[in-house]
Design a protein around this nucleic acid. Structure first.
Lengths: 314, 314
DNA sequence: CTCAAATGAGTAACCGATTACACATTTAAT
DNA sequence: ATTAAATGTGTAATCGGTTACTCATTTGAG
């Protein structure tokens, strides 16, 4: 028994011939080890959880794909948890999973307080969170990315640019909004009314854009805090008979595949979603396996991709 | 110890006062039971797995949402597994999960042979599979749904309707194609060339449609085997400057939210995706808990939803 | 050649629950 | 009043692994 365990885990001394015999026996008996029993004695489940706010958003799909790929390579299983933006659901998940000896969490949500996060007692990495001291975080350079978008709009002839921002209090939403402000705040056409809240949802963004066009029909540029909202804006333009990109240019943020499914195809500030997912997974595993981390805060570069909703010259 | 277990599981005789005391102690000590140990002795993990071929397809997102909701209500955890259409990955998942005492599977994939499925030794329900004897299955009335779509196209003036079918060998793809054939096979304009394969993918569908329009520019109706492919077709029309629905009418199949994100909004044969997911979960749990099942094969009704890609009169 | 270190393999304790069983006490039927 | 059945609680075996510990055998350095 102990010898078999040693063979399977390649630990301690076992004679070559014995290893051979054990393998034969395993083959013969079609033996498969019981992971639950192993977890119980090891106090580890070789499983990590990826917690996302909205599984329906393609951004998180892609993230999940990346995380899964890496964790699988290292012999871990990934559990995908959808919280629907509810802190209660999130706490429930964390509680349940801790009882199952979960080895670590990747939090792509932003609903729990830093305090709660700190008290978790389980290895963890966070996405899109601000400057934690204790927890490794990964995000793209949101403010810079926003500037990239707005600058392109300005250069390509926009004279009145609105911003559809994400939820109040969400760090990435603030940052992207700030990037927009950096470039337009001092221009004479600017007014805070040009910033509307779309809560990162297509539908809410549509409604907000529809409303603002009643009072500001001369808007000719839209920078949305994510692609879903940009597509919502595009829809409004199409329903109103406003030509995109001739009359209004639109740039989103994220770079989800959905952006290429609409027509005209969406121009966007593309985050390296897949890489961010892979990085998060690698860092988490490092943390679980107690290897030292070089850096705590990883800031990824964005790429402005101009497609059909902008009048780019190149 | 035994008493605490009895209190928590509400099994056997325990005195009221003792129950009270145990609860107090639990509160005091912040005790949480260890699920792994419980799993080991119960030989059950209170966890089920939903296996899907493509987590990126919104159809499966919605399905996952529904399954998760139901399983959570019954105290189960759901693991979402993405196979990327690879049988190898699927087998790997099954193997790994069985070692973790998984309680059941919902298979939304169609890559494994019936034989393998039969030998699983774990409760299981299948989606979109043909008429199993041993395994409960859930699907929509594919052939009937297809007829619904094609009939609408015919009634609304189409004189040459093409079909973008799903993968060869996939049962639901065959059925939907058959429904199309039922209505058009005997019409004088029909030729098998009007059926192209899009493999349920947007991109492949786009390419196929683009190609067929070189030789058959007079097509004025498109029935696609799923919404993703319909959107691919829509994209081709837009790029070619063909007006939808004036010159070409398009109907998809599935009823995913994505259909409402494109413009014009996609007409589609909507399956009750959420209900199918909930039903699958309920049936699986029934099976796990050894309750008798009334029916093995559940066929759901579809609803034709006409939106912007068809010229409906109502 | 001697003896300490390295190697190899078995025994038993442990992980943290569930549950069969034993035993004591209470309830209720005759 | 007697006794079988119901109620309440503790003890110990079990689930299937891991691993500290023990003991026997090899190896090799002095």
């Amino acid at each position: 028994m102990a010898t078999v365990s040693r063979v399977l885990n390649q630990k301690g001394y076992v004679h070559k011939d014995t290893v051979q015999k054990v393998h034969e026996a395993i083959e013969m008996l079609q033996y498969t080890p019981n992971d639950i029993a192993r977890s119980l004695s090891k106090k580890s489940s070789k499983t990590i959880a990826l917690i996302v706010p909205d599984i329906t958003n393609p951004f998180f799909n892609e993230l999940a794909l990346a995380v899964e790929k890496v964790t699988q390579m290292y012999g871990y299983t990934t559990i995908l948890c959808n919280t629907n933006d509810s802190p209660a659901v999130e706490r429930q998940y964390i509680q349940t999973l801790k009882q199952k000896y979960i080895d670590g969490f990747i939090m792509a949500t932003n609903t729990l307080s830093s305090n709660e996060i700190d008290q978790l007692q389980v290895p963890l990495v966070a996405l899109d969170r601000f400057n934690f001291q204790t927890v490794p975080t990964i995000s793209s350079k949101n403010r810079e990315g926003a500037r990239l978008a707005v600058q392109a709009l300005l250069q390509q002839g926009c004279t009145k640019i609105m911003h559809i921002r994400g939820p109040k209090g969400l760090w990435i939403a603030e940052e992207r909004c700030q990037g927009y402000l950096d470039l337009v705040e001092d221009l004479d056409w600017f007014t805070p009314k040009l910033i509307v809240n779309g809560n990162f949802q297509l539908k809410e963004a549509s409604e907000a854009v529809n409303k603002i066009f009643e009072t500001h029909p001369d808007i000719d540029g839209i920078f949305a805090g994510n692609d879903l909202m940009a597509i919502g804006a595009l829809r409004v333009m199409q329903k109103r008979g406003i030509r995109v990109p001739d009359q209004v240019q639109i740039i989103g943020y994220d770079g989800i595949p959905l952006g290429e499914m609409v027509y005209p195809e969406l121009s966007t500030v593309a985050q390296p979603i897949y890489e961010m997912g892979m990085l998060a997974a690698r860092i988490l595993i490092k943390k679980i396996e107690q290897q030292p981390l070089e850096e705590m805060n990883h800031q990824m570069d964005n790429e402005l991709i101009q497609r059909g909703t902008t009048r780019h010259t190149s």
